[in-house]
Design a protein around this nucleic acid. Structure first.
Lengths: 160, 160, 160, 160
DNA sequence: TTTT
DNA sequence: TTTT
């Protein structure tokens, strides 16, 4: 059935790349999407929308986007539930991003240098171009330095 | 910023119409949206997506749709939080339906009669046509019989 | 870049299934999508939107839908041009349907029998279930009886 | 009925602001939306999608966007026809933008100065903030210098 | 060239 | 008639 979501917003923090036990890449991130209208205090609030992205685009997101990056997402809404450590069922609504578009030059929104830039790039499911890791200095403060470690996401969650 | 959702699915139960203290109509409903792919057990799961609709379309939804009705929604994702009775912050992600389309003849999906039908009808924000209440028998088991009672929804939640 | 379209409407005529020289199925159809607002004469007009669908879903559309069928489309806008027989460039804007959802029981909207029906079915790209031909009587008045004939669509138009 | 389009792309030329005889602003522009996949020559093509926007957002588009600007559009597909000067019916498919989001700092993409910038701004129908004209120098080479002139768009085309 |  |  039809289930389609399109968002443009900014990452609220650096994306988190993980791997399932089977080695499938998953990245979680939250988009802050500013509302187009103001509340009665005259402020523009935002919606904070949790997103997941799988496989190659997951790695692209982790490599190209960081806190504050402007990105577009095309995907679908997914709901799931799990039992938390108090034995209570927790319901989750999130967006499964099928493609993510990077809407800013790489290096924008950073204190560092501004590499030359050929326009926003799309990182869809059918986009398997090469990529480089963002952290390039001698100190590695990349939050995903230990990416390769498998984690506690069941392969049953895979939407493919 | 762009925040757009389009869904087609079936109501998981009768919609719940309420009124804010200021008399604004709000209806909550959940759409079951079947996935287009199967899990590894070969079953097609569904996503259960909570929706809210305000004002006139809220009343239309309550009047025209019921458990099992097939409907289309065009809206946006909204997130909000509240403190539950244990003093814990609960985060909510839901769809604010800006327009709802009824995709079945009125009376379809019911044990009762099948009134004549001129096709699916849209109940957008700019659709202020007349309407009648669905419950028509002598027994009134309409769960919204006491609709008119104001309830615990703050007018601060209004997106307009 | 983001390019997403979602439509719900009715086919203005029976869909037309063709095959490219390489044997790839393509179906063209037009959706009449009623506007949710009225013009100043108080009439509700419609938009007539040309759609194309490729491969397996193309065959599903041809088999399951006909003039008047209610359908949902999830896809993208495509533009192209060709030189007509007067040597003039003609510009085309159409929707490439990536998935098509059948929103009515099979046999609805027909003078004939009403087969039992388990709800609307989706015919997405990842939906390769079996199918049967719609015409089942001894007279074959299927407009696509000579489907297998290759036609004048270049394989260069394939979006994959 | 559902009719929803979301696009992100770049303007192929400066937008054209006009006024109807009744003084309603209309702006036309074309978005080049790059495809996320490549053709068999390995090139990434684009779709060139004609858009119209009405009223206040029409003026915002004319003031804030120009050739090359990156913009997001949320709207619907509209079809219409007219008789050309050879007495032939011409069919038009275009996107009516209900809201337009400016995805670049003002002054980006230009040879001139780079005004300070607080992020992309949305110019939806409910966004009636102040605006200034882009051309600020002593020479006025603004292509819309004679904006105020009514033109040959019938008020019958208004979607509101 | 248009559907219910 | 096309953008980066």
């Amino acid at each position: 059935m039809l289930n389609r979501v399109v968002l443009v917003g900014r990452l609220t923090r650096d994306p988190e790349l993980r791997y399932t036990p089977n080695g499938v890449a998953v990245t979680n991130f939250t988009l802050a999407v500013n509302r187009t209208f103001s509340n009665k205090q005259g402020e523009r609030e935002a919606d904070f929308i949790n997103c997941v992205v799988w496989q190659k685009p997951a790695e692209n997101v982790a490599n190209y986007l960081k806190k504050g990056s402007l990105a577009g997402v095309d995907g679908r809404i997914q709901t799931r539930s799990y039992d938390n450590n108090e034995g209570r069922k927790v319901f989750i609504t999130e967006v499964v991003a099928e493609s993510v578009q990077f809407l800013e030059p790489r290096g924008a929104n950073s204190g560092q240098g501004n590499e030359s830039y050929g326009g926003p790039s799309s990182m869809g499911n059918n986009d398997y171009g090469k990529q480089q890791n963002r952290s390039s200095g001698s100190f590695n403060n990349d939050p995903f330095a230990n990416d390769g470690k498998p984690i506690d996401i069941s392969d049953d969650d895979l939407p493919f």
